[in-house]
Computed example of a mutant assay.
Amino acid sequence: MSKNRGKEGRDDYLFGEVFMQRKIKEAVFDMSFLLERGYGESSSCELVGSRYKLNKRQQQAIKGMSASETAVVHREKTKIPVENLEGTTLIIDGFNQLILLESILSEAYVFKGRDGAYRDLSNLYGTYKSVRQTEKAIEVFAEFFKKYSVLKVVWVFDAPVSNSGRMKTKLTEYANEKGYNWEVIQENNPDKFIVKSNFIGVSSDAWVLDKTKSWTNIIDVLIPENYPFLITC
C-alpha cells in the first residue's frame, strides 16, 4: 500500500509565498477571462502558463481554480447547501472525491476554485491504489452522510480503471457491515452517468458541474478549518 497522497518534493517551493503573492491570482484571473471569451481550457492554460512561467504542476493548479464567470454563476445556482440534504440521494464521482479527501488527509496541497469546488493534483493514470488514508476517508464520508441524514448514496467508479472492482467490493462490504444504504456501481463513463441521473451530484469535475441538474459541495464541510495547504484565489 502506498504511503499517502501527500505533497511532492518541490510542492512547498512551487506553491509557496512567491506563487501565492505574485502569480496565482493574476494567472487565475487571466485564464478565467479567456474562458469567458470562449477560449479552450487547454490553450488558455498554456497561454497563461507561458506568460507567468508556470511549470506543468502549477498550470494544473490554476486550471482547477479557473472558471468563466458564466460557469461560476451557473454552478452557484445549481448548488444544493449541505443543510438541505436530509432525505436525498447523492450520486458520488467515486475516484474524484475519494482521492481528493485522501489528499487532504495526507496534507497535500488542495486548490479552491472560483466556483467554490476543491481540486487536488493527483492523477490516476488508469490505476487506483489505496493509501494509508483510504479507510479513514471512507469513514469520514460515512459520518457526513449520517450527520446530514442522507437517504441513499450511489458511488460511481470508472470501470476501466484498474482496482475499481476492489473498491466496489470494499465499499459494498463496509456498507453491509454498517447497515448503510449505499449502492456501488462501475461505469465506463461515470461522468455522463452522473449527469443523466436525477440525483444530487458530488464531484469537483468542471464538466459534471456544468451539466448536472444539481450538486453539493461535501469537501467544503470536510476540509479542516485553517487547513495549511489550501490555496485559494
Rank of each mutant, 00 (worst) to 15 (best):
K56P: 03
L121H: 10
D220W: 01
K63A: 15
V208L: 06
S164E: 00
G179R: 10
D158F: 09
E139G: 08
A175L: 07
K196C: 07
K25W: 01
N123I: 15
S43I: 15
W155S: 02
G64F: 00
E143P: 05
L222R: 06
Y13E: 12
K147S: 10
V110R: 00
S103C: 09
L124G: 10
A175H: 02
I104W: 03
Y174R: 04
A206L: 13
G179D: 05
S43R: 08
R166K: 15
D30A: 13
R57E: 04
K7S: 05
L14E: 09
E36A: 05
R37T: 15
D191N: 13
V161S: 00
Y109W: 05
V82Y: 08
A117F: 14
I138G: 01
V28R: 03
I24D: 05
Q21L: 15
D115Q: 01
R132H: 10
V150Y: 08
K56D: 14
P224F: 03
Y227L: 04
N176Q: 12
K53R: 13
S43V: 14
P190S: 04
V184F: 02
E86P: 04
S44D: 08
L222W: 02
G6Y: 02
I185P: 02
W207M: 15
S44L: 07
F15C: 10
E183Y: 08
K146M: 08
S162Y: 15
V153W: 01
D93G: 06
N96F: 00
A108G: 12
M65N: 05
E8L: 11
C45N: 10
G87E: 09
S43K: 14
S149E: 15
E187P: 00
S32K: 02
K168Q: 11
R51A: 07
Y227K: 03
G64K: 02
S203N: 02
K192T: 14
T169S: 13
P160R: 11
K79W: 06
R22M: 13
F95Y: 12
W182A: 01
E41M: 11
A142E: 11
E143V: 08
R75Q: 10
L209C: 05
A108H: 06
N4Y: 09
Y180M: 08
L105I: 10
Q58V: 11
T232I: 11
V73E: 10
A117W: 12
Q21G: 08
S106Q: 00
L230F: 01
L47N: 11
L124F: 04
E139L: 15
I223D: 00
L101V: 03
T88Y: 00
Q133V: 06
F157D: 03
A108I: 06
E107V: 09
I185K: 13
E36R: 07
V48H: 03
E83H: 13
E143M: 12
